[in-house]
Amino acid sequence: MRRLPVYLLLDTSGSMRGERIEAVKNGLQVLVSKLRQDPFALESVHISIITFDREVKQLLPLTDLEHLQLPEIIPPESGPTNMGEALLMLCDQIDREIIRSTEEEKGDWRPLLFLMTDGKPSDLAKFREAVPRVKTKNFGAVVACAAGAEAVDSFLKELTDTVVHLDTADSSTLMSFFKWVSASIGTGNKSVGTAEEMVLPPPPAEVHLII
């Protein structure tokens, strides 16, 4: 049975403190509990969480839903948003954690990446170094979410064509984003249209999908 690796890269810089980080934590809970009610996800989905602020940490190594325990997330008072470094760590973890198919053994499905930020990369040089590397990792889908007025779409568009812009980063909007992520992860099990390849479900009303 192939695994479906899902990487969540979450901005935990100072600006996320307070309501936003609580909304993210809440969103993660909802995401996990929704996936735990989905037989398809329970069979294949594995989740990893990487957070980035001035430090970059893989808080949760790739784990199945059965054993997964959500980590504690505490953003620092202030400091830079090292998104570039987070993407570099992601690439390293992908190399380490993803089982590639061989002639003898079936590997994982193409991994999915969801990145969420309320700002922009502070380490732009590293970000620009990381983007081409990410693109070689054969992701099934890369979705970047820019949450709130200060979030900048343009950098994210260098990373992926699928940028979701949330006008506000309040709890209900972030929650709708996480619900949408859980629906997107489940897409593989839905009916496949006669016309197209993998399609993401429609985003929630508050979200603008920039393609």
Binding site: S101, K106, R110
Partner: peptide
């Protein structure tokens, strides 16, 4: 089953 048709999971 166990048969591998392609090392790319989608093609497989």
């Amino acid at each position: 089953g166990g048969k591998i048709h392609d090392t790319d999971p989608q093609k497989d």
